[in-house]
Design a binder for these strands. Sequence first.
DNA 1: GTAAACCGACTGTCTGGTCGGTTTTTCATA
DNA 2: TATGAAAAACCGACCAGACAGTCGGTTTAC
Lengths: 203, 203
Amino acid sequence: MPAIPELEAIRKTQILDAALQTIAANGHANVTMDDICKAAGLSKGGLAHYFKSKNDLFKAAFKAFFDRIFHRSQETMQAVDDPMGQLLSFDWLYNLDDPDLNIGYPLLFDVMSLAAHDEDYRRIFHDWIDNWVVLLEGALRKGLAKGHFKQLNPEATARTISAIYQGTATRWYLDPESHTTDWALTSFRQAIEGLMRPYLTQP
Amino acid sequence: MPAIPELEAIRKTQILDAALQTIAANGHANVTMDDICKAAGLSKGGLAHYFKSKNDLFKAAFKAFFDRIFHRSQETMQAVDDPMGQLLSFDWLYNLDDPDLNIGYPLLFDVMSLAAHDEDYRRIFHDWIDNWVVLLEGALRKGLAKGHFKQLNPEATARTISAIYQGTATRWYLDPESHTTDWALTSFRQAIEGLMRPYLTQP
DNA sequence: GTAAACCGACTGTCTGGTCGGTTTTTCATA
DNA sequence: TATGAAAAACCGACCAGACAGTCGGTTTAC
């Protein structure tokens, strides 16, 4: 019987947080279980009590993080009312003062490189994308319902918009010397506005 | 004295090719020197004669591949004359029958995840991007000179276009069930055409 | 003969997972 | 409330496999 009912949840998030920090700082390939143990303040055996294997832990960590970041972007988007404004509401992606992002970008790159060879990570990537798409699709449908937009395929367009965000963000994060924040902000706005122009009812 | 003058070059490309195939198939983190030795038909000592360390070999392999793919895209683009056509000439990126791409995508994801933690790989990524940008910039400058385009910043716009390609391609490759080739082709065209519309002289 | 090219057994290190043991908590019972 | 058995939580030494790099020796080319 459990000591404290919430203990398992507490320990698990403690371990997952430690794993995320360590993976983001060093890359998944350079992280050992000992590293995570130290970061989590637990012993090897203690950690094994909660996660069967390194693989299990890593997958759980990635899933947990992308869930968190999704909920956050959902909130940010819902703070905006105008559908077009919602589509453009992800400029917080380009703010490195945000601690989530310093974890999020390395993690995303790790997931992508893993997804190229591992079905489970492909699934994690897929789910993450789908979350974004559902959000953007919501804004597009709202715009259609309000009569701001016309004739667009919400899902396909949502995927395109999200791909534009990702493409711009990748460059901005990995090669900041050549891709300033100004460039990133201007780029995604111009690209998304250009993409949406044919679908606007009031030009 | 060298046995055959060209031997070193032959062996090196032989090893690099083997490394690229193996890395692309398994991911850089899952490749051992023995794997590459087998793929290259050389022994450990033989391989060591040409590359000091795993690190050296991997970096050389990545560089070699991105060089190759750059020359190829250069040729493809120069086969098109119209500047706007040149900007849209990278649809071969969305053809998985192409053996280069089955190597290229996994490699690109590996480089990005490595670049997040290693300066040398950041440089490789940077150089690769720059090659693309120079190509696209050329097309944009040509369009300006010919009077097809106006008022655009060639470098910034080239970077945006290249980011659109990359964002779309990433989705298409890693999550093909939700991102069909049709979607990819339509997406990048719509996004790039939308981006370019304000800069066109003849609408 | 000599140097480059190549071989493959060996070594030292790293690391994930295991496992016997210890501490802590719970709870039934007196 | 005291007690003690049982379960959960946790520890860390240990093991076995994997792997990069080395090195003495062999083959090949000139």
